[in-house]
Design a protein around this nucleic acid. Structure first.
Lengths: 333, 333
DNA sequence: TCCCTTTGTGGAACGGGTTCCACAGCCCGG
DNA sequence: CCGGGCTGTGGAACCCGTTCCACAAAGGGA
């Protein structure tokens, strides 16, 4: 049996095709009773609109490209959930582009692939808009940054400076020497993020304002081995200088490595060594990690709304949606 | 200025629209001279066909979904290169779906997202077809496995058993105790792969046939810290038992951890400790790693061809394209 | 040379939506 | 009670390719 079309629905409901289309797109000018009968016909026939017909008639692709770093963290799963729920409401499809490497990025955007055909672009964490200005990417779609910001495009992000400050404020009240460990930004200039820089500056300003000294020279890449090595070095120094101490780990991943290493040395978490993380990953609650929580879904949802309003013709200056982090105090600090 | 359509091209070239369409789709029945004039008109007008119109007219989505594990290894970049080059030739778009987690997979395939609309499915490394049979996924698109195999669907893969055998055969001739380290398959039952199992069975059979004993109880997950820990444990044992020794690492990632740990201990690679990897990642040449090379692009390209032939109506039984690994001998063993 | 195939080509019909115009019915003010 | 405007709705035109049918021209066999 043929897939039902909008014509079939119109016939079944005893209305015109225009009316069915109006119901599908939530146009206001459809009377309650008419709308009901259309909806009934739709469900009776199990009708689903043909997206390609829609695209060609509407002259748009109703597709959004999302460019993501390749990381399996819960963060991006939740971010996508937020993005997709908003785009789904507006009947947009989402195409995901994992940023595997530089050449692949250029291929994504430079040729006639899905990303190129999309009506809009979402960039997560990495701000690649500079490439547009350098004319290395020729895309001109409306763009929104999420988990990143810039003053020339719309953005939806958490205030990482504020997060750093919350951590700093809290840490400043704890006894013992203060330490901090940072994530190094990626090697490739292209894929950089200011997230960790911001966390750092917030933390440092607050701690210094409180007159506390910090040993903040520890860094690690986003890799479990590197994190563990850094944790070990830091704890060597801390043990040499004398416990207790407090460590701010600018990502839960680093905090996790610290917790492991602390346990390995038979030290007591929350007493000998206090650890403050950042991200509130799913395991953080389980392991009692004091950390900063981000409203990730909301960030995604709002990013989508910003982009959708551009697609609906909004022409104003770039807007920024700033979200506030929340310090979750658990046992680790 | 409006984007040129096929009508504009036809007018410019002084031919009918049907002819233009035939040229675009490489139908044979177009004379050389006519074809030339059409091609000239296309390039003069900078015409690019509207993919959505094509989809609706053709009744297909001309889109393939590729389901990938989320790993930044060179392997998947190359695999995608192979897949995309074949699909591009056939004028198919590729949509990538990183397998972030289970719920996301079900959402991808269960609802009316891009993956669902696609004409075909490529699954890399993970064989998720069992979910179709369990009715947990309702997709019925033609499917091809790449870097994985099963007897109920088309597949394109390297013979990992043969790779293991090559490694075993080579290792069996080297002096000292033999060791082997394996990658554990993922925890989630859904995302499993037989790749490492195969490498293991190939290696073991060859080594045992040569009458050599192996200490093959070492395993690690695909994580740098875990790999390093395993490497350390293995080398502790090896040093206790006496050098020289030879280690087969069933993934270059593990081999890399071994090389690091060997250097750390001041041992000589290729003399005290010989290491054989698997994958031939880009850094392997640089670090002189003896390893097994896979024709990754070809695997991807052939997988695409298998799928395309299904899309063109091929109805035969499942086919398997098996590729042979090649042992690259460098300094490490 | 004539008729019958091939071969190559033009163009209408078609796919399934959206949009816009026209019109019916209603409400309201004068 | 009538005309003007507003609201809600039907349906034709349109979006832009692919496909198929019809037909002209060229080639081949008798």
């Amino acid at each position: 049996m043929r897939k039902p079309t909008i014509q079939d629905v119109a016939r079944q409901a005893g209305v015109g095709v225009g009316t069915v289309s109006r119901v599908l797109n939530n146009h206001v000018a459809v009377k309650g009773a008419t709308r009901e009968s259309v909806l009934k016909a739709i469900s009776d026939l199990e009708y689903t609109p043909n997206p390609h017909a829609r695209r060609i008639a509407g002259g748009k692709s109703y597709t959004i490209s999302v460019l993501l770093p390749v990381l399996t963290t819960e963060f991006y799963v939740r971010l996508l959930d937020g993005l997709e729920s908003a785009f789904q409401e507006a009947r947009y499809d989402v195409a995901i582009f994992p940023l595997l490497d530089r050449s692949r990025l250029e291929r994504y955007l430079g040729s006639h692939t899905l990303a190129y055909q999309a009506d809009g672009l979402v960039m997560a964490t990495y701000n690649l808009t500079q490439m547009f200005h350098e004319r290395r990417l020729r895309t001109q779609q409306p763009t929104v940054l999420v988990d990143a910001y810039a003053d020339n495009v719309d953005s939806s992000f958490m205030d990482n400076v504020a997060g750093g400050r919350l951590a700093g404020e809290y840490a400043a009240k704890l006894p013992g020497q203060l330490y901090a460990v940072w994530v190094e930004t990626e090697l490739d200039q292209l894929f950089t993020t200011r997230v960790f820089e911001d966390r750092r500056s917030g933390f440092m300003s607050e701690v210094q304002a409180a007159g506390r000294s910090v040993r903040a020279e520890y860094t690690s890449s986003f890799d479990s081995l590197a994190a563990r090595n850094t944790a070990a070095t830091l704890l060597d120094d801390a043990q040499a200088a004398g416990l207790p101490c407090t460590v701010f780990a600018s990502a839960d991943m680093l905090a996790g490595a610290l917790l492991d290493e602390v346990r390995l040395r038979g030290l007591r978490i929350g007493q000998d060594v206090r650890v403050i993380g950042f991200d509130d990953q799913p395991w953080a609650a389980e392991r009692g990690l004091t950390t900063l929580h981000q409203p990730v879904e909301s960030m995604g949802y709002e990013a989508a709304q910003l982009l959708l309003s551009r697609l609906n013709g909004y022409k104003g200056p770039p807007r920024a949606r700033r979200f506030e982090p929340r310090l979750i105090v658990r046992g680790s600090a």
